[in-house]
Structure formats: C-alpha cells, structure tokens
Design a protein around this nucleic acid. Sequence first.
DNA 1: ACTCTGACGACTG
DNA 2: CCAGTCGCCAGAG
Length: 101
Amino acid sequence: MDELFKKQVYQIIRLIPEGRVTSYGAIAKAVGYPNHSRHVGNVLRNYGDDFPAHRVCNSCGHITASCLRDFVGKLAKEGVEVKDNRIQNFRNIFWNPLIEL
DNA sequence: ACTCTGACGACTG
DNA sequence: CCAGTCGCCAGAG
C-alpha cells in the first residue's frame, strides 16, 4: 500500500465538512484508486480516533465499523442522526469528494 | 506461491 | 428495502 495513498486518504477525510459524511469507495475514487475501498477503511484503522473517521461509512449509509466507539455520539454532536448503525437522511448529507471538492 | 480475511461496492431478484 | 453473489486488492499467516 502506497504511502501516497494513505496520505491522500487522510487529506480527503480532513476535508469532509462537519455534519456531512462520505463513503470509502468515494474516497478511493477521489485519490485515484477506484477499487481500493477496503483499504480506505484499513488506513482509517491506523490513524485511530484523532481524526474524523466517524464521517466515513459504506455506500449504503451503514456504519460497519467493528469498534463503533463514539461514532454515533460524535455524529449526533455534528447534527448527523444515526439509528441502528444507519445514518438517517444519508442521501442528503452525503458529501462527494469528486464533485463538491 | 497460496489461502483467508476485511471499517467495501455494484448488481440482481 | 433486504439478501445473496461476485469482484476487488493488499496484508498476514
């Protein structure tokens, strides 16, 4: 896995506005690796809790993070409603790094 | 070199 | 909307 890839992923995630979310696949595309959605999640795992990983979920708006920590709480704090690991209103708050960047 | 695994995704019914 | 299936690629063992 390229260091560049990680760096790009980190960069993109830092740019996600508060109260918005995006998906692993969207990030992967944005950094030029269309089929590396899984690795985006893997990169996130490494960086830990010090950056807004809670603003990233899968393309269905479903939070699949095994460790779930505070994600729901943090999201709620930013105005993102989550119910049963599912992001409510996902379609509206989705932030596309390719278009809105 | 091979097999399993995984914070995933697109398609189909 | 939900479940099943297949494709994807880098790490770990």
